[in-house]
């Protein structure tokens, strides 16, 4: 197994563990919101905000995981109709586009946003945690997507027909 593949596998494993944790935390959080309000009559002040923040993390880190799993939706009409060599070139181009987007918007833009909200000391309304740490999910997810796009790029030739699970 090459180093790239090894790293990708480890990253995927870490992402899936974290995703399971975030999902479970979200379920418990919203359940607690209902219980604290209805059964204990002492409404929790932070569950609503925490749930929204967890959702942002699930959405973005999950997006990286789904990218690794080739499960984002795309139209495959053109790519299915060209020669295998052209398929590889097209696939490499798509990986470049994705890599550039993830790098510019998610890693760089997300980092800028995170740094800005941290340095200007914006704190969340209910939990009082720095918004910068909430936004950290954007650059982190961007880094994962960059790596997976890089992996897909160098392995574009080897498993191009392996992508049939992308539902297209």
């Amino acid at each position: 197994m090459s180093t790239v593949v090894l790293i990708s596998t480890r990253l995927e494993k870490a992402l899936s563990n974290f995703l399971a944790f975030l999902m479970a935390a979200m379920v418990i959080d919203v359940l607690w919101q209902v219980i604290s309000r209805f059964a204990l009559a002492d409404p929790s002040s932070y569950t609503e905000e925490l749930a929204r923040f967890l959702l942002m993390w699930v959405g973005l880190l999950g997006a990286a995981y789904a990218y690794r799993k080739h499960s984002h939706l795309s139209l495959d009409l053109v790519i299915k109709s060209v020669s295998p060599a052209a398929q590889i070139r097209l696939n490499r181009f798509i990986q470049c586009v994705t890599f550039t987007f993830a790098l510019c918007v998610m890693v760089f833009g997300g980092y800028k946003l995170m740094a800005l909200t941290l340095s200007l000391k914006q704190n969340s309304a209910a939990l009082g945690i720095p918004m910068g740490w909430v936004y950290a999910c954007i650059p982190i997810s961007g880094l994962f997507i960059c790596w997976f796009a890089f992996d897909n790029f160098i392995h574009a030739g080897s498993h191009s027909e392996n992508n049939n699970n992308s539902k297209v």
Partner: peptide
């Protein structure tokens, strides 16, 4: 994990 992945496709 499966639910998280399906969710994330929509959320992105």
């Amino acid at each position: 994990v499966k639910a998280g992945e399906t969710t994330a496709i929509v959320l992105l």
